[in-house]
Design a protein around this nucleic acid. Structure first.
Ligand code: MN
Ligand code: MN
Ligand code: ZN
Ligand code: ZN
Lengths: 153, 153
DNA sequence: CGCCTTATTGATAATAATATTCAGTTGAGG
DNA sequence: CCTCAACTGAATATTATTATCAATAAGGCG
């Protein structure tokens, strides 16, 4: 069941150190931002950069890109394709908060929804092949009601 | 249930013309390539470009990018994030061939698997919100057995 | 069947997200 | 503390994808 723990600074440090990596203030700040992000919000690299700038905790874009990638590969964050041209990120929540995305390919309006069966099926599929699960996300690409009406394409 | 028909030149033409667009030899060729692609194969824009070059049916990269995007937004092709840095495409098959992807985030080794329940859940989720379904794909990000062994990160 | 309008193509240049480089800094283990 | 490799930030490079624009060719229509 997506063994994605709720990370604390301590557990993040432990997991990093285990691999010879380090806990830095920047990584701690970024984790905190994602942990406090309201449900349904997703940040791009630029979003995160701007947000931190605002908070007076400026972190370089280089470090932001590196950290987003690192944490995604650790299974701490999820990398999402919610819009064309750039990725979005959110914290990778375990079971009761784990969810999926219904995305309008025209305007990018996104609706989240939960599904236990999907998480189960995904977990089993990974297990069967001996893969170590990091994230499991159903992406539904569709056209929202508004965009259906506006006949534009 | 993902009303993605099996496209023929005629039905492609019909659907294009309906929107004031045109069927061109290039679009026909590209559709044919994807329809004849063996199960489990996915093409990037560059892959497709090289493949057509080889076949002596060279099509410009501009047109390839435009066509891949157009056909994805029409629901004819699926746009997949199977590797970092570029997208892959495959034909969007209806029910009995519809499938999902288990992807190693380290080496990009990908395994396909089917699941009727997921397609059902996705279809229902879109319906409930009044979205017009184009594609429904579960992406499982994980680490394959080989990459688990090689302790590298 | 031709004609006219306009979508489409291909070549080229532009854009923008992300990666890389490297010198200076700082975690973490001993 | 000390050492050393991992990390950061600034600048630069990369590269997938998009935009531009003149030339071409679908397709609706008379
Ligand atoms: Mn979300
Ligand atoms: Mn596939
Ligand atoms: Zn929309
Ligand atoms: Zn692998």
């Amino acid at each position: 069941m997506l063994n994605a723990p709720v990370y604390t600074s301590a557990s993040l440090k432990a997991e990093l150190n285990e691999k010879g990596w380090r806990l830095t203030p920047q990584r701690e700040v970024i984790l905190t931002v994602f942990q406090n992000l309201p449900e349904g919000q997703h940040l791009s690299a630029e979003d995160l950069y701007a947000l931190l700038e605002e908070q007076g905790e400026g972190i370089s874009l280089s470090t932001i890109y590196r950290t987003l990638k690192l944490m995604s590969r650790m299974g701490i964050l999820r990398e999402l394709e919610l819009a064309e041209g750039h990725k979005h990120y959110e914290i990778n929540q375990p079971h009761p908060h784990h969810h999926h995305h219904l995305i309008c390919v025209r305007c990018s309006k996104t609706i989240e929804f939960k599904s236990d069966p999907i998480l189960k099926i995904g977990t089993k599929a990974a297990q069967k092949e001996g893969y170590h699960l990091l994230d499991c996300q159903l992406s539904i690409h569709a056209v929202c009601p508004t965009c259906q009406r506006s006949l534009l394409v």
